[in-house]
Amino acid sequence: MNYDFIVVGHGLAGAILAYTLRKKGHQVLVIDEPKENSASNVAAGLVNPVAGKRFAKSWLADVFLPFADQFYQELEERFGQPLFFHKPIYKVFSSIEEQNNWMAKSAGGNWSEYIKTTYTQSTGEESINDPYGGIVIDKGGYLLVSETLRLLAEEQLAKGQMLPERFDVEQLQLTEQGVKYKNIEARHLIFCEGYQVVHNPYFKWLPLQPTKGEVLEIQTQNFEPERIYNKAVYVVPVGGGRFKIGATYNWRQADEVPTPEGQEELTERFTQITTQPYRVVNHWAGIRPAVRDRRPLIGQHPDYPQLSVFNGMGSKGVLMAPYLAHLYAQALAGEAELLPDVHISRYFSLYYDYIKHQNL
């Protein structure tokens, strides 16, 4: 059977890319082994346009945000149910120094598009510990990632556009026309494997660091469900008095096993935000594909142009994937150029060093 594209992996990046390629009229086959605790399924799906202790606007937020908004609205209309929820984010200052840092930062630029309110003292909310105040960030929200992936997968399975199995790279053959996998032929194959790319013989030279993250789901009744909270951890409402809390970052232990240490870290940070009683309902662990320069890894292989990678979005996939999938679909058709910041050509020197080492 012939396709234009094979997409390996159906995390958020692969799912959005496959959907985007089909919208452009291409025949696309997705190959993916379903996995409940994939990084995408575990994630809270957070979008935050102002991130970090330095109060930096998220990279290309002005481009990514409106595109993502439109993309998820289209999916909601397609499937007839809400998937993306717009929520303000209350970033709680952890110290007077952090408050001062924000005041200095905000004095040097126009933040009115993203910052709704600045509090220099407590808001007075009984359930929140915010003695130094905080800022309310506009245009935040979260995607129901696992539900979005489930709907897209069910649609593809019903149409015979998805193989729910593990991709065996040893059965991949490169041909003059493209690629052949078992009895399937395609012009191009795109790896969207997340952290598993470190085991991929064609792209293992990329500087991707598997990073374990643990997430809790808790139940509490006395917490504002119309806001996302952020103070060392995020607290995202998911309905019915439940909230997702996360996430940890662990570069040393790249497995998907929830740990008592992870739960302790998350609950300790949660209790810095509130003194309200709660109980832990669920505890998950997943592995993110983190990149050293915090930019995605997208582009064709330097020696095998019939192979590509679309990866490395880490915790920013909900925000970045819709626009970058659109841009890469155009680039593969020769209609646009990839952004240099995301193109894997910035790491081609690592590939040539890897090849040289293999030939020694």
Rank of each mutant, 00 (worst) to 15 (best):
N222V: 07
P225C: 12
P225G: 09
P225F: 07
R227F: 13
R227Q: 09
R227I: 09
R227Y: 06
I228T: 01
I228E: 01
A232W: 10
A232L: 12
A232M: 12
V233P: 02
Y234L: 07
V238Y: 08
V238S: 12
V238Q: 05
G239C: 04
G240W: 08
G241N: 08
R242A: 11
F243N: 05
I245Y: 02
G246R: 00
G246A: 09
G246E: 08
A247I: 06
A247M: 08
T248S: 13
T248G: 10
Y249F: 15
Y249T: 13
N250M: 09
N250Q: 14
W251Q: 14
W251Y: 15
R252D: 15
Q253G: 05
E256Q: 15
V257K: 15
V257F: 09
V257M: 14
P258G: 09
P258A: 11
T259V: 03
T259D: 10
E261W: 11
G262K: 03
G262Q: 01
Q263G: 11
Q263C: 12
E265G: 05
L266H: 03
L266R: 00
R269E: 14
F270R: 02
F270W: 06
T275N: 15
Q276Y: 06
P277D: 05
P277N: 08
Y278F: 07
Y278D: 08
R279L: 12
V280R: 11
V280H: 04
V281M: 04
V281R: 07
V281L: 13
V281D: 03
V281G: 07
V281T: 05
H283L: 12
W284V: 01
A285L: 06
A285C: 10
A285Q: 02
G286H: 00
G286V: 03
I287F: 10
R288V: 00
P289R: 06
P289Y: 04
A290G: 09
V291R: 02
V291S: 04
R292I: 15
D293Y: 00
R294W: 12
R294N: 14
R294M: 13
R295D: 10
P296K: 01
L297T: 01
I298A: 08
Q300P: 03
Q300I: 07
H301N: 05
H301L: 04
P302G: 06
D303I: 13
L307V: 10
L307E: 05
V309E: 00
V309P: 01
F310K: 02
N311G: 11
G312N: 01
G314I: 06
L324E: 01
H326E: 15
H326I: 08
L327N: 03
Y328D: 03
